[in-house]
Write a protein that binds this DNA or RNA. Structure first.
Lengths: 133, 133
DNA sequence: CTGAATCCATATGGATACTG
DNA sequence: CAGTATCCATATGGATTCAG
């Protein structure tokens, strides 16, 4: 660790270790438009495709499929196909997926808490800009 | 809160409150390709444009500018222009910005810890797929 | 029901050149 | 030094259609 730089988190050094390249690669996929929301929804337990689709308003079938595939590929979600007709497929967080829940919800919690402040700041900013020219 | 759903985080209900629409809007901007990395770098204190550009390998001038503008607009970073020539501009986290540091680094820490596991899972997944056809 | 495939619009982001 | 402006390639993601 460099000289008197205030590092209040043990991973801060690792983040900058390779310029954040490794971190970015993983984070880009965890932190996208839908992943955190799907993970948060799967906190409720094992759910099937349609349940997820209904509980996450606004997500398209395509994006739900892609998000679930990525989560499955990364070992964060397990996929169970029941040999029935009509087909029934259930998704569930793996232990690794559940371990993501807490930091993900912490970030989500931060976002929710700061929505009013951020939106106020944005309005002030655009007003300022508006007067500017 | 619905029936016996295991909710181990106080904000989980709010996340699904509006289907995550509000959350997504904010989270999409916090959780993009560069924001977390810029915030983490500003943990070191007040930095000028060139310092940030040098400490975040891979970021383009354009994206650093855009990311800083968004953070400034959201009240998470302050921008100080010194009336000198050549110009000197310094960026620093606001208190709100600093409050983002901990959840952001927690998520980053999770990502770093799980990189090996995730990459192993990906390899296994593509091998499986490879055998599939 | 659970997808995969296709089409298309927009967003993101890098490279480069230019400015005060 | 600290940007802005422009061009262009790729990524993202919605809508729709088709299939097992």
């Amino acid at each position: 660790m460099p000289e008197g730089v205030p590092m209040n988190f043990p991973h801060a050094c690792m983040i900058k270790g390779d310029g954040g390249r490794t971190l970015r690669r993983i984070l880009d996929q965890i932190c996208n438009k839908w992943t955190l929301l799907v993970v948060a929804t799967l906190d409720a337990g094992r759910l099937r495709f349609t349940d997820l689709h209904r509980q996450i308003p606004g997500i398209s079938q395509r994006m739900l499929t892609l998000t679930l595939r990525n989560l499955e590929r990364d070992g964060l979600v397990s996929r169970t196909v029941h040999a029935e007709v009509p087909p029934r497929v259930e998704y569930e967080l793996t232990p690794a997926g559940r371990s993501l829940l807490q930091p993900a919800l912490a970030l989500a919690g931060w976002a929710i808490e700061h929505v009013p402040q951020i939106e106020a700041s944005r309005e002030a900013y655009s007003e300022q800009r508006g007067r500017g020219h």
